[in-house]
């Protein structure tokens, strides 16, 4: 029994190593966060499609929002001897040891969409992602322009401690500090979800200061869409009585803009596939790449929404 197994294992090992010789196309391991939102799904699809188009073999692992699953995935990518690893870290902390393993195995790592906190910058080749602070700034600039620098703002924040929530708040605050008549009077987390956005907005509208609110800033579209329902239920006109600006640019936000209920969405582009694989190919070929690459993004207002809507993929 024992000898039989050993023989089988050896035979299998010989077989599989002969297979390995045949394949020499680029192999890329991608450790994705999960499938928690429409944005993320669009992000994954863009990456998979682009890999297929370029004839790159993609090993795609969905970590189900768990850090341990991502570490496992990276370990297995290292064992598989992929050419490049791409990681969209679930959280910022705790990736240093496994990134060091990748470095020791001479496999370059590209961080995508979210940063990871590491003490040694050489542990990753480059970071490609949206500039969340800039998104916050753009949202504030739109609001300042739209309201002539005068507004009393309610804010729906993202998941506490997450990079997009921290940075989108920071960028927004930076700009409105320049306008003495723009003030955030209420701010609470809506956890990036539609349901929580609606619930928190309901609470805002029941508070004694509810009458003062003239504008709403939501850290993502889903929360803004929830808030729109709450505003309508309270008998006010979203987009008219309360100016609403949010971030992401998902399709349903464009629909809301076309109906006049949302005033502006700052795009956070998930379709990073082409840009990402340009980097992957450069890194695999040993070429120099910049340490930070921004994703191309835009700002959309109601006037543009109707034209852009048919082309939205997510």
């Amino acid at each position: 029994m024992n000898r039989f197994i050993r023989t089988a294992v050896v035979a299998a090992a010989t077989l599989s190593s002969s297979f390995a010789m045949a394949a020499d196309k680029l192999v890329v391991g991608f450790a994705q966060v999960g499938a928690e939102s429409a944005w993320r799904t669009a992000n994954s699809k863009s990456i998979k499609d682009e890999a297929e188009k370029r004839g790159i073999e993609l090993k795609f692992v969905d970590a189900q929002q768990k850090q341990e699953n991502q570490i496992k995935a990276i370990r297995s990518f290292i064992a598989q001897r992929v050419n490049v690893i791409v990681l969209a870290p679930v959280v910022e902390a705790g990736f240093e040891p496994v990134l060091r393993e990748a470095k020791r195995a001479h496999i370059p790592v590209i961080l995508s969409d979210r940063r990871a906190k590491v003490s040694d910058e050489s542990l990753y080749a480059t970071f490609i992602g949206a500039d969340f602070v800039e998104e916050g700034r753009r949202a504030a600039k739109f609001l300042a322009e739209k309201t002539g620098g005068k507004s009393t703002i309610a804010e729906l924040e993202g998941t506490p401690g997450s990079a997009p929530a921290n940075d989108r708040k920071k960028g927004f605050d930076e700009i409105i500090a320049k306008y003495p008549d723009m003030k955030v009077i209420m701010s609470q987390t809506g956890d990036f979800t539609r349901a929580k956005g609606k619930e928190v907005m309901e609470a805002f509208l029941k508070s004694p200061d509810a009458g003062k609110i003239t504008a709403l800033y939501a850290h993502n579209d889903d929360m803004a869409l929830g808030a729109i329902q709450a505003i309508e239920a309270a008998g006010k006109k979203p987009g008219v009585d309360i100016t609403i600006v949010s971030i992401d640019g998902v399709k349903s936000a464009f629909e809301a803009m076309a109906e006049g209920k949302l005033n502006c969405t700052v795009e956070c582009n998930p379709l990073i596939g082409p840009q990402l694989f340009d980097l992957v190919e450069k890194v695999a070929a040993g070429q120099e790449v910049p340490k930070r690459v921004d994703v191309q993004e835009g700002v959309f207002t109601q006037e543009q929404a109707k034209d852009a809507l048919p082309n939205r993929q997510y």
Binding site: I5, A12, S16, R81
Partner: peptide, 29 residues
Amino acid sequence: LLMYVAAGLRYDNFFTPQVAVNLIGDNAF
């Protein structure tokens, strides 16, 4: 054993010591 051998036959680099070590280390907790 069946799963291990089947996976090893199907994938390159599966029958490496590092994969075996990872099986223990990654599932330690």
